[in-house]
């Protein structure tokens, strides 16, 4: 029989293999439960409605029941993300009854940031990093320093700086991007 601890230790890929071989939904549900809250979060972000987002999670689950049998999936996590996002965007598009115009606004940014990039900063070339850090706008510089060098979480940074959570987040995101661009420009 299936023991719970066994489920936990299985990798995504092992669960997919078991599901493909045995066709038993238990394996698939075990796998999907690992990502339910993330998929739900993604659906919430795009659909902006709790009920629609819950439906989205279940729809995707149902789609997985046959997709995983048909397709070989190697990087499940990444694949699931793309799939979840596409499904939400299709949903949005079908609501608008517009083939292609409706999807552009937020896709661009996220689509381009699709893949986990290596942590460029901090591990290399400190003098150049310092120089680039100096070039950042003050709030970005401050948040980046607190986050990366002092390893403070967003909550702490809001307390120290007085910025609100979303400001902190965006300063760090933008600061990180600017820093990376700067490092690349001045590199090589």
């Amino acid at each position: 029989m299936f023991v719970k601890s066994k489920d936990v230790s299985q990798t995504d890929e092992e669960l997919i293999r078991l599901y493909r071989e045995e066709g038993h939904l238990h394996w698939l549900s075990t796998l999907y439960l690992r990502y339910t809250s993330m998929v739900y979060g993604v659906c919430l972000k795009y659909l902006k409605d709790r009920e629609a987002a819950r439906d989205g999670v279940m729809q995707l689950y149902e789609a997985l029941t046959h997709d995983l049998r048909k397709h070989e999936v190697t990087n499940f996590r990444g694949w699931l993300y793309v799939k979840a996002r596409n499904q939400c965007l299709m949903e949005l598009r079908s609501k608008k009854h517009q083939p292609s115009e409706g999807i552009s606004p937020f896709l661009m940014e996220n689509g381009l940031a699709e893949h986990p990039e290596q942590e460029v900063m901090l591990h290399q070339d400190t003098p150049r990093l310092e120089k680039c850090l100096q070039l950042l706008a003050e709030p970005q510089q401050r948040c980046i320093t607190l986050f990366y060098l002092e390893e403070k979480c967003y909550k702490d940074i809001t307390r120290v700086t007085g910025y609100d959570y979303n400001q902190v987040k965006s300063y760090i995101q933008n600061g990180k991007r600017n820093l990376k661009n700067c490092m690349e420009q001045h590199g090589s």
Binding site: S37, M38, Y40, G41, V42, K45, A53, L80, N110, A113
Partner: peptide
Amino acid sequence: PFLADAIEGA
């Protein structure tokens, strides 16, 4: 981005 979207949505 998966995690970032999920947190933002949540």
